[in-house]
C-alpha cells in the first residue's frame, strides 16, 4: 500500500485574527510589523482578542490601533501607561496592553512607565527600542548608542553632551511591582520566536494578576539609520545587542510556572 502519495495541503502560517487585514504605514523592512504580528499571535493563542484593549503611543506606532483587531485607544505622547491604568482599573477582567517606542516610553513617558510598574499595575507593555525617533525623521532617542549618528546628534551621539543610552529593561527590573521584564530582539527568525515566547509570558502574567510586565524588543529603523533592511538587522546584532543584552531581567516567582506551562 502506498500511503505516501496520500497527502493533503495544510495552511501552516497565516495572518492572526488579532491583526487587522490592512496594509501598515511602516517603512520597508521596519520590524514594527513583526512586533505587531507576534503580539497578535499571542492574543490569538491566549483566546483573549475580544476582551483586549490596546493603547497606542505617539511615534511610529501611533496608528497601531488600526492594525490590531482589538478595541484600542490612542494616548498622548508617553502617557500610554497612565491611560492603560485608567482602563484597567475600571475593566480589571480585560487584557490591557501598551505598545510604545523608545522616545515615548524612555524619554517623555519615563515617569508614567516607572510608576505603572511601581504600582504593580496589571498591564503589559510592548516596548520597541530602535535607538532613534523614527516618526519625526531620525532624531536622537534616549536609547541612541554612543557614536550613533542621528539628525540631532550630528557626528554621532556624544556622551559628554548627552549622557548615555538608557537600558530600560534593567531599570524596570529593579522595581518591586514588576512581575516579568525581558529584552528580546527581532533581528532573525530564532530571536523573533524567542521574543514571541516572552510576550506570551508577559500576557500570561497579566492574565494571572501578577502585576506589571514588559518586553523590550530591539527593533530596526532602516530608513533613519540609512541602511538596507538586511544591514539594519545585522546592525542590531552587531551593535545593539552588545549594549542591550538579551534575556529575562525580572521573573517573579509566580511567573516561573507560567514559563514552563507553554
Amino acid at each position: 500500500m502506498t500511503s505516501a502519495v496520500m497527502v493533503e495541503e495544510k495552511v501552516v502560517y497565516e495572518r492572526p485574527e488579532s491583526l487587522a487585514d490592512v496594509a501598515t504605514h511602516y517603512c520597508p523592512g521596519c520590524t514594527h510589523g513583526i512586533a505587531h504580528r507576534i503580539v497578535a499571535e499571542v492574543l490569538d493563542e491566549l483566546g483573549v482578542r475580544d476582551r483586549t484593549i490596546g493603547v497606542s503611543p505617539v511615534g511610529c506606532a501611533v496608528l497601531a490601533y488600526k492594525y490590531f483587531n482589538t478595541d484600542g485607544a490612542e494616548a498622548a505622547h508617553g502617557r500610554a501607561p497612565a491611560m492603560a491604568t485608567g482602563i484597567k482599573r475600571v475593566m480589571p477582567d480585560h487584557v490591557v496592553f501598551t505598545y510604545q517606542g523608545d522616545g515615548d516610553l524612555a524619554a517623555i513617558g519615563i515617569a508614567e512607565i516607572i510608576h505603572a510598574a511601581t504600582r504593580g499595575e496589571n498591564i503589559t507593555t510592548i516596548f520597541v527600542n530602535n535607538a532613534i525617533y523614527g516618526m519625526t525623521g531620525g532624531q536622537m532617542a534616549p536609547t541612541t548608542l554612543i557614536g550613533q549618528e542621528t539628525t540631532s546628534s550630528p557626528g554621532g551621539r556624544s556622551q559628554t553632551l548627552t549622557g548615555f543610552p538608557v537600558r530600560m529593561a534593567e531599570l524596570m527590573a529593579g522595581i518591586t511591582g514588576s512581575a516579568y521584564i525581558a529584552r528580546r530582539s527581532l533581528h532573525n527568525v530564532k530571536e523573533i520566536n524567542t521574543a514571541k515566547r516572552a510576550i506570551k509570558t508577559a500576557f500570561l502574567a497579566q492574565l494571572n494578576g501578577l502585576g506589571f510586565s514588559m518586553v523590550e524588543l530591539l527593533s530596526t529603523c532602516p530608513t533613519n539609520w540609512k541602511v538596507s533592511p538586511a544591514e539594519a538587522l545585522a546592525w542590531v546584532e552587531s551593535d545593539m545587542v552588545p549594549y542591550y543584552p538579551l534575556g529575562d531581567y525580572k521573573v517573579a516567582e509566580e511567573v516561573k510556572p507560567l514559563m514552563k506551562r507553554r
Binding site: 495544510k10 495552511v11 501552516v12 511602516y26 523592512g29 514594527h32 510589523g33 504580528r37 523573533i192
Partner: peptide
Amino acid sequence: VACPDVCITVYRQ
C-alpha cells in the same frame, strides 16, 4: 516569520 508585513501564507503537504 521574518516578513514585517504579513504578506506570506505558507502551505505544507
